[in-house]
């Protein structure tokens, strides 16, 4: 069965605030952009898809099976790059990514090979063995993206991966995301008119708790 992420009447509430209201949408392999104003619920939608949170109502299905029952199956093929991560400053980029690879159940040798290839692709190769404490904002952003792409995931959730990046890095990241979207479902929030936007199979607007084609 083709991997499809299916949201059926999904809602999310924080206290009295309804952030998502009965969202129904199916994501298929390819790049889907999520746009909309700040605070509209884009990141919340992404967190729900990435199993970082549970919906207040409705169902999320992965390859036809409901979460949370299928959560572990989904997590094995999931790559998630949130906007902010408490990065372990004392570790090197390589140590950090290999640690996450271990948590994903990847073999060290294979994970290391993938890490080096991805580090080259995002322009972090020269800093692979440097401590994260010396990384700039853009380097941190690329490192978080890199760990999300490790293990060739089938569902990739990226929360504004191109923010804080310079033009060169943005192009590298766009190319990488486009390539990943050839075989995986890539959900990406963005405010910007990225180069990657032209490659999107769908652009959805999140606003007022609803998700609609932009």
């Amino acid at each position: 069965m083709t991997a499809i992420l299916d949201l059926k009447s999904v809602s999310k509430r924080y206290g009295k605030k309804l952030v998502l209201d009965g969202v129904s949408v199916a994501f298929q392999p390819g790049l889907t952009l999520l746009t909309g104003p700040s605070g509209a619920g884009k990141s919340t939608l992404l967190r729900l898809c990435a199993t970082a949170e549970r919906p207040s109502g409705g169902d999320i299905l992965w390859a036809g099976q409901k979460l949370p029952g299928a959560r572990e199956r989904l997590r094995r093929v999931l790559g998630y790059a949130p906007q902010a991560v408490d990065l372990p400053e004392e570790l090197t980029a390589r140590e950090f990514v290999l640690h996450l690879a271990a948590l994903k159940g990847l073999k060290t040798g294979e994970a290391d090979r993938q890490f080096l290839a991805l580090a080259e692709a995002v322009g972090l190769h020269a800093d692979a063995n440097n401590r994260i404490s010396g990384f700039s904002g853009g380097m941190r952003r690329r490192l978080v993206l890199l760990q999300a792409l490790l293990g060739q995931p089938q569902l990739i959730c990226l929360d504004e991966p191109t923010a804080e990046l310079d033009t060169d890095s943005r192009q590298r990241v766009a190319a990488l995301i486009t390539r990943a979207a050839q075989s995986a479902i890539v959900l990406m929030t963005t405010h910007l008119e990225d180069g990657v936007a032209t490659q999107a199979r769908a652009v959805l607007r999140v606003d007022g708790g609803r998700v609609q084609p932009a």
Partner: peptide, 16 residues
């Protein structure tokens, strides 16, 4: 100490 900050945002969606 330094380990009080953990990358929970990505660790908590790992299958480990």
């Amino acid at each position: 100490n330094v380990t009080r900050r953990q990358p929970w945002q990505v660790e908590e969606v790992a299958p480990a």
